[in-house]
Design a protein around this nucleic acid. Structure first.
Length: 443
DNA sequence: GCGATCAGTT
DNA sequence: CACAACTGATCGC
């Protein structure tokens, strides 16, 4: 394999520059405290959090990318000549420190989103949007390496703002309960801040998480003292129905999982009314206890599901990844020549071009302005294609499921080692080789 | 002790 | 069941 490469969230040998979009463990697999393969570029905040995750990391290898500024690297091609590469980091709004990366060079212009949430109507998103448009205004983006986690029209869930308010409503409807919220080592801070602000209470976290909060600059909102607040965040992995049942033998407690499982809609495109609130239907069915819980006469603004899948446990669709509509908006904004997914999941991986191909194309500014008039028509055409596609996709998923079920049956009685082969593949990409056309591969 | 892989959790 | 993000066990060095 040729040398002279750039790697993003990928840590194999052979690159001259390594980029980290954010500090979640599925993007740092292969990174360690003893890292010595080359310079590592990341945002200032990621760099600040770095020693916490990798205590003895050689910090002299870290290069900070100023958000919104072009940085120029000079890489050595195999022929010995220098090749100039420019890179800009842009806020990805996924977790603290997370960025997307725009690369320019003789290979063209590439955009690596990392994990990202592209929410409209938020100041921070507007800044990122302006930055991105500024960065690519004179470019044609050849490839987006896309966070395609929820790149499927069936993934529909509300903004984090709305989901956070849903959490607050659940807490308000349980005035006598202790509240336990499952979170990971990084991310969902905004949710906790929202709760703290709305309810005017501190949030309890575990000691390491408090350190992280302090590093992030939140000094007065969080505590490790369980006795001064009824809202507590705990590591998601250590949080189960069993835990809650045990807690409930001491004191009434409910759990909230701000993450993502059951928003997958089954009959979504059917007559199922998107706007009929799950809350309402639940309370009609009497699944909510009577005393002061969420009432059915409140304004129905929640589109995503709040699911109470256990007496003590709620699931709220608070996601740090973009939903399908947001991904679509993003692709329409950038109009890349091509898309590649950076996530390939065990089941139902859909090639992003399958749905979003219609939104790719030339992104020259003149055409963007022009397209205003025609956008309606083109969107409608695209929707038609998309709808059609989803039919095929349903079939695809179904057959996938059948296939897996079949293999399950065939090997019943065994722990399926076959499954391990189907598990999530690691993310990241080697996105540039000098002296060769743009080339990418999943790790 | 370290890294990689696998298994299992919510 | 689905997913992202994570811990923990085990193996080879």
């Amino acid at each position: 394999m040729e040398s002279g490469l750039i790697s993003v969230d990928r840590w194999a040998d052979g690159s001259q520059a390594y980029f980290l979009t954010h500090l979640h463990s599925d993007h740092t697999k292969g990174l360690s405290s003893s890292w010595a393969k080359g310079p590592l570029f990341c945002s200032r905040l990621t760099a600040k959090l770095f020693p916490f995750k990798f205590p003895h990391f050689n910090l002299s290898l870290i290069r900070i990318l100023q958000i919104g500024s072009w940085h120029t690297l000079s890489l050595l091609s195999s022929s010995g000549s220098r090749s100039r590469v420019q890179v800009m980091a842009i806020d990805a709004h996924h977790c603290p420190g997370s960025v997307m990366l725009v690369f320019r060079g003789e290979f063209g212009c590439l955009l690596y989103t990392g994990d990202f949430r592209w929410e409209a109507n938020c100041e921070r998103a507007a800044r990122a949007r302006d930055m991105l448009l500024g960065a690519i205004k004179d470019e044609v983006v050849d490839i987006i390496y896309l966070d395609n986690t929820y790149c499927n029209p069936s993934y529909d869930f509300p903004s984090r703002q709305v989901a956070a308010q849903q959490v607050v409503n659940i807490i308000l409807s349980h005035p006598e309960h202790d509240i336990v919220i499952g979170i990971n080592t990084l991310g969902k801070e905004d949710l906790l801040l929202h709760i703290s602000r709305e309810l005017k209470i501190k949030i309890c976290v575990w000691p390491e998480r408090l350190q992280t909060m302090h590093l992030l600059g939140f000094n007065d909102i969080f505590t490790t003292n369980t006795s001064i607040t009824r809202v507590r965040a705990v590591p998601q992995y250590s949080f189960s129905i069993d835990t809650l049942e045990a807690l409930n033998t001491m004191h009434p407690t409910i759990g909230i999982m701000p993450s993502g499982l059951p928003w997958v809609k089954k009959g979504l495109q059917k007559s199922e009314n998107l706007y009929s609130s799950f809350l309402t239907s639940r309370s009609k069915r009497g699944r909510w206890s009577a005393n002061g819980e969420v009432r059915s006469d409140q304004p129905v603004t929640n589109i995503g599901l709040i699911e109470r899948f256990h007496e003590y446990m709620y699931s709220v669709p608070y996601s740090d990844h973009s939903n399908y509509a947001e991904i679509k908006e993003f692709v329409k904004l950038v109009r890349p020549t091509k898309l590649k997914g950076i996530v390939s999941s065990s089941t139902c991986y859909i090639e992003p071009m399958y749905y979003l191909g219609p939104f790719c194309g030339v992104n020259r500014p003149a055409q963007k302005l022009h397209s205003k008039h025609e956008s309606k028509g083109s969107v409608e055409r695209a929707e038609a294609v998309s709808t059609k596609s989803s039919f095929h996709n349903d079939n695809f998923e179904e057959s996938e499921n059948k296939r897996i079920k079949t293999s399950k049956v065939k090997s019943s009685g065994f722990r399926l080692s076959k499954f391990s082969g189907l598990r999530r593949m690691s993310r990241g990409a080697k996105i540039y080789e000098t002296n060769s056309p743009v080339k990418a591969e999943k790790a």
